[in-house]
Amino acid sequence: MHKIHRSIAGAVLAMLASLYVAQPTRAADAPDAAANAAANSATSTQIALSAAKHRVGADHSMILGATLAGSRIVAVGEHGVILLSDDHGAHFRQAHNVPANATLNAVTFADAQHGWAAGHWGVVLRTDDGGENWRVQRTDTSVDQPLFSIAFRDDKHGWAVGLWSLLVTTDDGGITWKTQQVDPSAGAGKSGLNFFSVFAGPDKDVYIAAEQGTVLRSNDDGASWQTLHTGYKGTLWSGVVAADHTIYVGGLRGNLFASGDDGQTWQAVPSGASGSITDLVANAGTVAAVALDGYVTRKQAGQHDFVAKQLPGRDALTALVLNDDGSPVLFSKEGVLAK
């Protein structure tokens, strides 16, 4: 399986991101017909998103998700900005063609070429050339029910999650998306728990980090789900499965939890951060997280504990990528942080 990585900013940042969502244009201003045909069918009362614009200083845009596409770094954020780096994060440029200007919250790649991004207005975008060009696979502009996270196990099987227990799945690489009803049985009210991070484990395991310290697990690639309770009552923003199959989930106030038995039991893990953990990643034997108070915390292979370091500027960190040598590339509300 490709390198395990998930990226999602928490609800605090999702709310902040909503302030930056570009207003959709009328259908007459929509992207080309092929992109519209790939998107979900819309009624005559719905509106269409326009293409993202190339902008000076795009690397200073608010970035909410990042991942690796082979050795390339791909980062996504406000106004449909998608940034690419082929020198391990030293320099970034915008993707050539992004047909939706909605704020993008997350991005994932199945391999170096095939990737997906998700965000506001239920948008799912796909690329087949490593992030250079994208096309719309899903939108729902009848209501802004944002997708906060997206994950693919391979180039066929994927999941995206969002507001009000939204879970959409695909078995054909995103050509079609099916909305799946999930009852987390956690007393969240009629709107359901908000789902903030979806991430794949080994074999057919898939996990969702949600509100009220809830983690949902599927051991059949998302066909059915079981509700797990960490014992924590706060919101979980992010999650990842490490190379040793340990599951990590993080959330409010630096809370971090780990499970070594497929989520049956959970232990609190000192993260060293006090701000909300917005992203968790694993690569090359290292597990790392970033938080809104500017902390970067890492647990390297052979280490028992996480070691945290706060950036001097205390930037509100939103996402990170670990290069193959374990070095981090950091992203924030203010964009790419200089290495």
Results as ranks from 00 to 15, higher is better:
residue 188 A to I: 03
residue 168 V to S: 10
residue 194 N to Y: 09
residue 161 V to K: 04
residue 239 G to C: 01
residue 181 Q to H: 12
residue 290 V to W: 05
residue 171 D to E: 01
residue 245 H to D: 15
residue 275 G to I: 04
residue 276 S to C: 02
residue 246 T to K: 13
residue 219 N to C: 03
residue 282 A to I: 11
residue 226 Q to A: 01
residue 176 T to M: 08
residue 281 V to S: 07
residue 261 D to I: 02
residue 243 A to C: 00
residue 186 A to N: 04
residue 259 S to D: 09
residue 149 S to W: 07
residue 283 N to L: 07
residue 265 T to I: 01
residue 200 A to N: 10
residue 286 T to H: 10
residue 153 R to Y: 03
residue 241 V to F: 07
residue 239 G to V: 02
residue 257 F to K: 04
residue 186 A to S: 05
residue 190 K to F: 01
residue 258 A to N: 14
residue 254 G to M: 04
residue 242 A to Q: 06
residue 166 L to R: 12
residue 271 S to I: 10
residue 244 D to F: 10
residue 152 F to Y: 12
residue 271 S to G: 08
residue 247 I to R: 14
residue 197 S to I: 02
residue 206 V to Q: 06
residue 248 Y to L: 13
residue 248 Y to G: 12
residue 269 V to C: 08
residue 216 L to M: 14
residue 173 G to C: 07
residue 184 P to N: 13
residue 239 G to A: 01
residue 238 S to H: 00
residue 252 L to Q: 10
residue 240 V to I: 15
residue 275 G to E: 07
residue 283 N to P: 01
residue 236 L to C: 13
residue 262 D to I: 04
residue 168 V to F: 07
residue 180 Q to A: 04
residue 222 G to I: 08
residue 203 D to M: 04
residue 287 V to G: 10
residue 192 G to H: 08
residue 272 G to R: 14
residue 248 Y to H: 12
residue 190 K to D: 09
residue 262 D to L: 11
residue 216 L to R: 12
residue 193 L to C: 02
residue 230 T to W: 07
residue 267 Q to I: 02
residue 196 F to K: 14
residue 180 Q to E: 05
residue 256 L to M: 12
residue 247 I to A: 15
residue 164 W to P: 11
residue 250 G to V: 11
residue 236 L to Y: 10
residue 242 A to E: 03
residue 190 K to M: 01
residue 168 V to K: 12
residue 198 V to E: 05
residue 277 I to N: 09
residue 255 N to F: 01
residue 208 I to A: 01
residue 215 V to T: 08
residue 204 K to D: 15
residue 256 L to W: 06
residue 219 N to T: 10
residue 225 W to I: 01
residue 210 A to T: 00
residue 242 A to Y: 06
residue 270 P to E: 00
residue 284 A to G: 11
residue 196 F to M: 14
residue 264 Q to K: 13
residue 164 W to Y: 15
